[in-house]
């Protein structure tokens, strides 16, 4: 990362911390914003937050590592979280899980080599009567079947055209709104 980028990031974080009341309570909302924008919370971000909030970086790390939606390692642009709880299991989540692993060539907890997809488990998405359910970034898919896994992944892949540069890809990680 270039120095200027880091400075910009620091300035952004400082500004957002003030927006959220300039106290410890701002920590999680700001971490969530960083997570959403960059896909992970780097050590640099943690240090900046510690400086701004006048707490030890270990405190920040403690928070960042506690919550499963926050990661300190880079994750894929699309984070696919499949519900693994009982109601979804009863509706056949296992086969959906196998299909996801086969199609992406990774296991749960891993990220594809191209950095596009991360596969994770989630504990209940609240779609218990519509299972199996999965969450792609902030979009919920219900009654997923091994067949529809393919369509969901294809929908995600459409976001990355062949000729898009890495930077452009980063900017367009939102799923198309017309999807599904």
């Amino acid at each position: 990362m270039l120095i200027s980028e880091r400075e910009q990031l620091r300035a952004n974080i400082e500004r957002r911390v003030i927006d959220f009341g300039n106290n410890r309570s701002a920590l999680i909302p700001v971490i969530q914003e960083v997570q959403q924008k960059y896909g992970h919370v780097s050590e640099y971000v943690m240090q900046v937050l510690a400086d701004v909030l006048h707490i030890h970086p270990v405190e920040v790390y403690g928070v960042a590592s506690f919550y499963s939606f926050i990661g300190h390692k880079p994750k894929g642009r699309f984070i696919i979280r499949l519900c693994r709880t009982l109601p979804c299991e009863m509706k056949g989540k296992e086969r959906v899980a196998r299909q996801l692993e086969n199609d992406l060539g990774i296991h749960f907890g891993e990220t594809t080599d191209d950095g596009n997809f991360t596969l994770e488990w989630a504990n209940c998405l609240g779609m218990c009567d519509q299972g199996p359910a999965l969450l792609v970034n902030e979009r919920i898919y219900t009654q997923v079947t091994p067949q529809s896994v393919h369509d969901i992944l294809e929908e995600c892949r459409e976001v990355f055209g062949v000729h898009t540069t890495l930077q452009e890809k980063e900017m367009s990680c939102e799923l198309p709104t017309s999807a599904k």
Binding site: S25, I28, P29, G62, V63, F66, I70, N123, C124
Partner: peptide, 25 residues
């Protein structure tokens, strides 16, 4: 305030800790 994927934060004291910006314990 948004949770971040921790079930234990449904416990009231853990939830309050989370709002305060701490680990949800």
């Amino acid at each position: 305030r948004l949770g971040a994927g921790a079930f234990v934060c449904g416990e009231e004291t853990a939830l309050l800790a989370s709002i305060e910006g701490k680990r949800g314990m």
